[in-house]
Design a protein around this nucleic acid. Structure first.
Lengths: 224, 224
DNA sequence: GGTCACTCTTGAACACTGTGCAAGAGTGTT
DNA sequence: AACACTCTTGCACAGTGTTCAAGAGTGACC
């Protein structure tokens, strides 16, 4: 990865050994491969064979760097087709696209979330969801509410995966905590289930479906 | 806040000027007042009139300190009564209790979340939710799924409040981003709505209701 | 060719963060 | 008085983001 920068390229105006987009690319590579915590200014500079000051000159700030990374990634992301026969199913599919995208690029999503840039990252997919909602007859504030509820759910399920139970101290694992609970109000089978992990993939889908079904009217044949 | 520690108290065994619980209390105070980022070892030590090394001797670690804080807070939190006439409503109320609690102590919740200790923080309220689900006839894995879905939703709505749009750079605000979108598939009223903030309180409730209604059977009179 | 202006790069610092180590105070027991 | 044990300290280290004055390198102008 380390390509010690001699005077290879000097482009367009003046002497320019390093260009902004090279920095963004290198940073994006670090994030996707090793997560946002690995993205330090010194590390990034070292990967580019450059001093941190140079990074600052080009990018300004770590926060601005993160935004630039997210922006860059969002640009390159191609649209994901929405499939499904009924409007409801298409809405659900659009929502699941958001989930799959966020989960597929979890490192970047985590970073964007910390920077408050999730909307920037997922705007096209959110727009697709809004569009499907419109096709299903949901508009205005009701559509907005569904979008936000879907986003919240996805975000919530995501962060529950950021620190998987296995790599927490034992005393913090839900399995451990629930196995100690002895509550007469709660059925033993429920306690057992709470102590064991759920099938996330399926759970996300059924949760999103619940949200969507509550807001999107049943398909009635007459709809054009 | 700074009470320079002379040799005031020396309790129980040997000479003990500072006790573990004092540290936890001081740390908890910092977190609730100023957030998890303000909880640095030096700051905490200064508040107690002590060196950081002392903190380490008593607590071991920052991570362990955080866990201790969460544990301490959870112990002191009193049970919240669940009200509602029908089982469904009681389940919803228990879920909303979780939301209100998490939101009420957002700084602590954020810290616990970063440490992967949310379950430790909210276990009693989660148990209450599980109990109400049982009373509504939902047991085992289905109950677990509802609990997890509710938790995910709450977590998601919470993090969307951690960095309110007003204090982000303008280019990241949903209002700004959506106002630039010009998508013919999306109704103008929807676009307008997406650019303006939602009523979170109401949205959380309706989302949780959707999840619960989908999983909890309608109340039928005959239930004992 | 020499000078100027502008763009980019550097090295060295600053103020923070969490953490570890060796040394020492303070107290109870022998 | 001597020892053991608990607690506390000062100092250091490695790492973080960030800034500042200084300097290289290149194009344009005289």
């Amino acid at each position: 990865m380390t390509s010690t920068r001699t005077s290879e390229r000097r482009a367009s105006t003046r002497h320019a050994g390093l260009e902004r987009h090279e920095i963004i690319d290198a940073a994006l590579a670090i994030v996707t491969a090793e997560g946002g915590a690995a993205l330090t200014m010194r590390r990034l500079a070292a990967d580019l064979g450059v001093t941190t000051t140079t990074i600052y000159w080009h990018v300004g700030n770590r926060e601005q760097l993160v935004v630039a990374i997210v922006e860059r990634f969002a640009e390159e992301q191609s649209a994901i087709p929405v499939i499904g026969r009924t409007p409801r199913r298409r809405v659900l599919h659009a929502a699941m696209n958001l989930w799959r995208s966020a989960r597929g690029h979890r490192n970047l999503t985590a970073l964007a979330s910390a920077a408050g840039a999730t909307t920037l990252l997922e705007l096209p997919l959110e727009a697709a969801l809004a569009a499907e909602l419109g096709a299903a007859g949901v508009h205005g504030e009701r559509a907005r509410d569904v979008v936000q509820a879907v986003l919240a759910c996805i975000a919530g399920f995501l962060i529950s995966e950021w620190r998987p139970a296995e790599q927490r101290p034992e005393a913090l694992r839900p399995s451990e905590l629930w196995s100690r609970v002895d509550d007469p109000r709660i059925d033993p089978s429920t306690l057992r289930a709470l102590a064991s992990p759920a099938d996330h993939e399926r759970l996300v889908e059924s949760t999103l479906r619940a949200i969507i079904d509550a807001a999107v009217p049943e398909t009635h044949r007459g709809t054009p």
